[in-house]
């Protein structure tokens, strides 16, 4: 059920990116999709009542064999950590394209950016 809500969030982002005319709205739709995918990956690795994958002193004294059975999955967290920073870089790239287009055409409407200019 939580996966379905997460996928609903992704679908809202997809709808926004496909049907809107405003360029910034399209960027917002892509950002919403990124949030949904990151959230889904983290949810796959969650363990009910688990602990964060950071070893403390008490875990070390009781042995690491028990820590495997109560820690959440560190691998999706590592993947998502890089994906978040990449999303900021790609957001900057998309926004710079939007700003440049606005300077050239004076509008964010993608249906009016048809004529060649300059």
């Amino acid at each position: 059920m939580l996966y379905a809500l997460c996928f609903l969030l992704f679908t809202i982002g997809l709808y926004c990116a496909v049907t809107k005319k405003n360029m910034v709205k399209i960027v917002i739709g892509i950002m919403v999709m990124e949030y949904a995918v990151n959230l889904f990956l983290i949810m796959l690795g969650y363990r009910m009542g688990g602990v964060a994958p950071i070893i403390g002193r008490s875990d070390l004294e009781s042995g690491l064999g028990g820590f495997v059975n109560k820690s959440v999955d560190p691998l999706p967290q590592a993947l998502v950590l890089t994906a978040i920073v990449i999303s900021l870089g790609s957001l900057a790239l998309m926004i710079s394209i939007c700003v440049r287009t606005y300077e050239k055409y004076g509008t964010f409407d993608i249906t009016q950016i048809r004529r060649l200019k300059g």
Partner: peptide, 28 residues
């Protein structure tokens, strides 16, 4: 949600990235 899903690294990164992304979006 990341904080409640036991992913503090992601929570810290998401907060600061969100602030910078908002600055970029509002600037645009």
């Amino acid at each position: 949600i990341f904080l409640f899903l036991r992913a503090p690294d992601i929570a810290i990164t998401q907060i600061v990235v969100e602030v910078l992304g908002l600055i970029i979006l509002i600037r645009a």
